[in-house]
C-alpha cells in the first residue's frame, strides 16, 4: 500500500489532520537537507513534501525561489533528489514523501523513467505545479503504473465545471491552493478555507490538503479538522535558511503540537 494512503487511513481513525512539511530538496546542500529530512518524522511531520529545484519556479514566492537557487548552486538535480529520498529511506521507511516541482526537469529526465526511479527510491506521490489536467493524461498513466499518486491541484479560481474536470480520476488526495498568489503570500482565514474546501468536496471524496499562505501554529490549529492535510512551506524554508536544521525541526514540532494539542 502506498504510504500516503496508509498514513491518511491511520489519521482518519484518530481522527486528526495531517501536517505536511515542505522543504526544497538539497537546500542548502545535500548533507544538510538529508539531516533535516531524517528529523522530520520524529518532529511530527505526517507527510514530507520535497521540492524539486527548478530554474524558473513561477508559482513560488521569494522564500522558495531562494531555496531553489541555493539547492541548484549546491548541485541538486532531479537525480540527486531521488538519491536524497533513497538515503532518507535508510532511517525513515514510513513517512510518505511527495515530490513537488515543475514539469520540465521530469520531462528531461524522461517521465516514465522518473516515475519508476522515484517509486523505487521511496517516493509516494508527485505534484507538478505546471501540469494542468489538460495535459495530465499520459503522466497520470505513468504514475499509476509506478504506484505513485500524481496529485491534482485546485485553486480559488476553479469553478464547479472546472473542479469536476480537474478531479475526475484523482487519486491520493487533492491539493487545494488556498489563495490566488504564489507560495508564502499573505495568509488566508480558516473560514475562507472552509468555504472553499466545501465546494471542492462536492466533486471528490478524497482527503483535501490546504496549502499556500499557512505559516503559524495558530493558523494550523484553526484549520485542524477543516482540511485533512495542512501544508506549511515558505515559513519552514525561511527558518531553515535563517537559523538552520534544529530551528527548522523545532518549528515543525510547534506546528505538529498545534494539531495534537
Amino acid at each position: 500500500m502506498n504510504r500516503i494512503d496508509h498514513t491518511l487511513a491511520r489519521l482518519r481513525q484518530r481522527p486528526r489532520s495531517a501536517l505536511v512539511s515542505y522543504f526544497t530538496a538539497g537546500d542548502p546542500d545535500f548533507a544538510t537537507s538529508l539531516r533535516l529530512l531524517q528529523g522530520l518524522g520524529a518532529a511530527g511531520a505526517d507527510l514530507i513534501e520535497l521540492g524539486l529545484p527548478f530554474s524558473d519556479p513561477v508559482a513560488d514566492g521569494p522564500a522558495i525561489q531562494a531555496a531553489h537557487i541555493r539547492a541548484r548552486a549546491a548541485g541538486q538535480t532531479a537525480a540527486r533528489t531521488l538519491e536524497l529520498v533513497q538515503a532518507l529511506r535508510q532511517s525513515d521507511a514510513q513517512t510518505p514523501v511527495i515530490l513537488m516541482g515543475y514539469l520540465n526537469p521530469v520531462m528531461q529526465y524522461g517521465a516514465a523513467g522518473f516515475m519508476q526511479d522515484a517509486a523505487r527510491a521511496g517516493v509516494d506521490g508527485l505534484i507538478l505545479v505546471d501540469l494542468p489536467v489538460e495535459h495530465m493524461a499520459p503522466y497520470h498513466q505513468l504514475a499509476q503504473e509506478a504506484g505513485l499518486h500524481l496529485i491534482r491541484m485546485t485553486a480559488p479560481t476553479s469553478d464547479d465545471v472546472r473542479l469536476e474536470k480537474v478531479l475526475q480520476g484523482a487519486t491520493g488526495f487533492v491539493y487545494h491552493v488556498t489563495l490566488t498568489g504564489t507560495t508564502g503570500a499573505a495568509s488566508c482565514t480558516a473560514a475562507q478555507v472552509e468555504t472553499a474546501l466545501a465546494q471542492v468536496r462536492r466533486h471528490t471524496t478524497l482527503p483535501l490538503a490546504a496549502g499556500f499562505g499557512i505559516r503559524t501554529p495558530v493558523q494550523v490549529r484553526e484549520l485542524a479538522g477543516v482540511a485533512e492535510l495542512i501544508v506549511v512551506g515558505s515559513r519552514l524554508v525561511e527558518v531553515l535558511a535563517a537559523q538552520g536544521v534544529e530551528a527548522a525541526l523545532a518549528e515543525v514540532q510547534a506546528l505538529a503540537a498545534a494539531l495534537r494539542g
Partner: peptide, 19 residues
C-alpha cells in the same frame, strides 16, 4: 488545446487555467 503539432499547449498552474 492550443497545440501546434506537439508544441504549445497551456502548461500553467491551476490558478491561471480559468483565466
Amino acid at each position: 488545446a492550443g497545440l501546434f503539432g506537439r508544441f504549445g499547449g497551456a502548461y500553467m498552474p491551476e490558478t491561471l487555467m480559468p483565466a
